[in-house]
Design a protein around this nucleic acid. Sequence first.
DNA 1: GATCGCTTCCAAAGCGCTTTGAAGCTATCA
DNA 2: TGATAGCTTCAAAGCGCTTTGGAAGCGATC
Lengths: 339, 339
Amino acid sequence: MKLKDLADKLGLSQTTVSRALNGYPEVSEATRERVLDAARRFHYRPNVSARRLATGRAGAIGAVLHSNRSLLLDPHYAEFLAGLGDRLADDDIDIVLSPVRSDELANYRRMASGSRVDAIILSSPPVEDDRVRFLAELGMPFILHGRTVSRIPHAWLDIDNEGAFHHATKHLLDLGHTRIALINADTRFTYASDRDKGYRKALSERGIAPDPKWIATGWMTDEVGFRCAERFLSERPRPTALIVSSMMMALGAFRAIRSAGLELGRDISMIAHDDVFPFLNPDRMVPTMSTTRSSIRAAGTRIAELAIEMLNGRPAESIHELWPVDLVIRASTGPAPAA
Amino acid sequence: MKLKDLADKLGLSQTTVSRALNGYPEVSEATRERVLDAARRFHYRPNVSARRLATGRAGAIGAVLHSNRSLLLDPHYAEFLAGLGDRLADDDIDIVLSPVRSDELANYRRMASGSRVDAIILSSPPVEDDRVRFLAELGMPFILHGRTVSRIPHAWLDIDNEGAFHHATKHLLDLGHTRIALINADTRFTYASDRDKGYRKALSERGIAPDPKWIATGWMTDEVGFRCAERFLSERPRPTALIVSSMMMALGAFRAIRSAGLELGRDISMIAHDDVFPFLNPDRMVPTMSTTRSSIRAAGTRIAELAIEMLNGRPAESIHELWPVDLVIRASTGPAPAA
DNA sequence: GATCGCTTCCAAAGCGCTTTGAAGCTATCA
DNA sequence: TGATAGCTTCAAAGCGCTTTGGAAGCGATC
């Protein structure tokens, strides 16, 4: 069933049918109804390749999958993609996934070639990201999820990681904590580096020198959370509070706390960053977990929207969004225990 | 730079240039060289939409991303996709990723509509998978990674999970172990159910009744591995051997073993299933880990190949591959300790 | 009755590629 | 010399959609 068939059946021209289906105004409401109804009845689906050829758009957005970098980003990235795909599907845009082989840039080159995708999403940028220059030179539109230093103007959306961890640290300080440990991701990534900054800034503002002994980094997994927390808790005096970069890590840290015989929220406080996974609800933990909260899925959805705007002509350099991050206090934080 | 431009520059017709580029025989070697050279010089890239429209192929294969089911599949799935993408890229085929919203079947419907993809890959089927019937009715070609019960003939590739765990269990029995615990994935999934079968069969063959107390299931994460192992190790008498469904779980189990003050390979044995992650090498663990090994990435690559064959006319019902699984004995297995 | 302005619809020209059917050319053979 | 065959190349017809540039129909206006 193609457009022509449908038009023939309706006794209309292809033009009219096409316009009716695509919501153009120069078609009477009566006709539009008739067309939409017929399309439904005959299960008409426009051929995407034909449409893409005619419109000159690929109807797809590219994303690169780092399978070997580590497993760390996976749940986060999957959640991000879910948000992205959700929104893109509304506009009938596909996500083309390109798993990286050896050379990541080759993936971008391939996606750019033959207008395979209309734009590319870059995630988890390092502090200095050479992909920005590369894509700019390729002339391929892109949006960065996160930020990076680059003289090249480009579109980005990020959450205020620095502010979030600054806020969280300050809150703990207000509760009387002074020995606050940080379990962070690798600070080569901007988001981790920003969190590190926020943490240090809050301490410095209170005249506390950040102590490297109480800063650990690693993949955002349960296991790393466990190990780092275990190490911290073996120190004497030990920290009275933990700030953790992901809920995965927090789960591990939580285990370490329990196995050290401590009670979370009383003997030790914890604030974790919550990307809002559907399967990991801080309200359902025992005790409930205080968090800095920002839905990574929502970010994906918004980036999809921005990408669509960009394809419709909005200049990339006008797209800069920095999202504030909520601090949600629950039961895992309490006053510092009396020394 | 489009085909016509290139043809004009060369003083050839579009036909000849197209044939030269696509390796058709009715073009002299001299001309082909000239064309290929020019294409390279002018960075000619055929427009994929145009090609797709002309050939009637979508040039893409669909995969559905389950972000909310759990995080369990992620590293495994990412690795699988990497293998898939590797091979598909050689034939200029994209992976179209469709993150599931509420209704998974809707994803398949969308991908099928408007010939958005040429085929779909189904992963981690449950024992009875209604997606098979659904896709068959939709007339959409698909390949199953794994197996499921269905009267509908369809293409699948699976590893011999039952054989693998049968073999592993038998090996432990041969070493004198009789209390062998199993840490498995959810047995609603065929692969987990098959592993369960293999394990039970080996025990039964030696006259040992499988004890539900020593069978645990859950997501294939470090954390679950830790918890299950911890529970097993607190039993008295405790198991002398563990069989584990993934390396992630094995990491957690390993921690539990250590924190119970036991030495892996001497006090207790362990065999884990190894999907061959680049970042997780059983040879580099201490002690090295005995495994049932089957590269999930290789499976992805092979499925890509089969998909391509299927698109070239190979009947789906002729595509059934069951891969044997290696048992690799390393240092984590030893004779059962004297009671 | 002619003109204008709207609304509603259409024929036809692409989009950039593949592929069919045919033709030009050279070499070979009777 | 003409016919046959084999090798190269080409013109043109799609693939199924969008979109341009009109045109038809119709009531209102002059």
